[in-house]
Amino acid sequence: MSGQPPERARVERVRVERVRVTGPARRRTPGARTRDIEAETRLGEVYMGSLLREQLWLAVRVLVVLAVVVGSLPLAFHVWPGLTGVRLLGAPLPWVLLGVAVYPFLVLLGWHYVRRAERNEADFLELMSEVRE
């Protein structure tokens, strides 16, 4: 993931100061499976890197779909001004697309993202528990 040598990272490990007021209950003793991540060994970095890459790629994919579908609309109407006069279900096309259709599309895209992101995290947890065996 990063080119930083693991030794250095380990030596310079510094705790972030903050006050936790409340939060989800957590077990006190970290299991063996997560020690690689905590100690920031090379193996731990591989685990973390894979999770980070998965999540980032998922986000990028979703946002590219958003940019291509919604972001291309202004350009389309700029290049083909005739589209403005097209009527769909009795209403002008721009109104149907921008006033109505875009919102269910956004919700669907968001729903897809949440499902995939949660699955990525479940996979990661599973990987961590397998490592321990």
Binding site: A9, R15, V16, R26, E40, M48, L52
Partner: peptide, 23 residues
């Protein structure tokens, strides 16, 4: 680059169910 960046990244991206020391 802050020395604790790697640790901070772990905290940001791992699910809470994982019993890590989150600093």
């Amino acid at each position: 680059v802050p020395a604790h960046t790697g640790r901070f990244m772990v905290r940001l991206h791992t699910p809470e169910a994982l019993d890590l020391d989150r600093g």
